[in-house]
Design a protein around this nucleic acid. Structure first.
Lengths: 199, 199
DNA sequence: CCTACCGATCGGTAGG
DNA sequence: CCTACCGATCGGTAGG
């Protein structure tokens, strides 16, 4: 009855709806998930699901934010403990492949899924996907620049290395999700090591 | 009135519906396209669109077949003129990147789009996507095997090379479609050349 | 956060 | 290949 309790309950509901959306959207896509499905999965009414967000698009944006948070928690945060430069790039590679291989989300990499789904659909969701991937790209570039400056890498084009690492992650994700190819993680590791001139 | 004329007309209708579906689905996905949209775009009734196929799923399979045909026509057929082995792999790489860069379909690579959309949706469409990508993978592996046997490549794992080429193509497609990154094709070319040990 | 409801659209079919 | 229609579901809202 107190405002505190109801505010907490409302927050818990938001979190539960977002969690369900992230899990389902990793499989079916952010557009593929309907409010009715979410409501049934959560044992709630449709109004209860969409109410806290106002619209499906606002819920999609909230789910995307949450997926980015998970990605950061799984990869960037633990890698931040490594020395900037090549050591951190190695750490990022291992964590990234581990994240994909463990199947943290049931449908694989959320950002890859969303990028595919929204690349031809202009709007706020696409803009948010572009921003998230661009930031990740910049992070990778910065680490390459540091590694080159430290003499741990030959004079590579940072954008080229970032492009290749990202492409390899996409390849691993496709092989895992589409064909359940168990070798994919190993192939991804080999490819990333070659991109980072580690062999 | 003659059966011949009406059979031809029916065939022309089938082709028009498939063409429209391929174009739209490359942008919105095979599930994202509705029969009503197709009907409006073609100036036909919904019954006229779905009738020749029987169901939306049958139309999706027909569109996928057509997209595979386009891919083969754009890449495999012209590359078949090159010597088997490394020369053909170089040819495939250039044609593949050219196909992606020219924007043959408005939404980019149809197979990548479909793979993303159906990897978590078991059924006949997913099966067809898996089969098409597996065959392409085998084609690439066979060319690598030939190139290694001819001494034009070091003793590489054909599956690894096929994996990397496919990953690079996905990376190029994403960069082009999502961010309109003009450098993507150039980056893809550099990455493929490195995978094929051409530098 | 629920019930009850809105107009729109979905895939698909009957009948011609 | 069209008109007319089916039940189901869509995203969303009013009112409590």
């Amino acid at each position: 009855m107190s405002p505190r309790r109801s505010a907490l309950a409302a927050q818990a509901t938001r979190v539960a709806v977002i969690e369900e959306t992230v899990n389902r959207a990793s499989v079916e896509g952010l557009n593929g998930v309907s409010i009715g499905e979410l409501a049934e999965g959560l044992g709630m009414s449709k109004a209860g699901v969409v109410g806290p967000f106002g619209s499906k698009e606002a819920l999609q944006l909230a789910a995307l934010d949450r997926a980015i948070e998970i990605f950061r928690h799984e990869i960037w945060d633990p890698a931040a403990g490594a020395e900037p430069g090549l050591a951190r790039l190695k750490s990022i590679s291992d964590l990234w492949l581990g994240y994909l291989g463990r199947g943290v989300l049931p449908g694989g990499c959320f950002l890859t899924q969303s990028a595919c789904e929204f690349d031809g659909r202009p709007g706020p969701v696409k803009d948010a996907v572009v921003q998230a991937l661009s930031r990740w790209h910049s992070v990778l570039e910065a680490e390459v620049t540091t590694a080159v400056a430290a003499g741990d890498l030959p004079d590579l084009d940072p954008g080229q290395v970032a492009f290749e690492l990202n492409a390899i992650a996409q390849g691993v994700n496709q092989a895992l999700q589409l064909r359940g190819d168990e070798q994919a993680v190993l192939r991804g590791r080999r490819a990333m090591r070659r991109t980072l001139h580690l062999d």
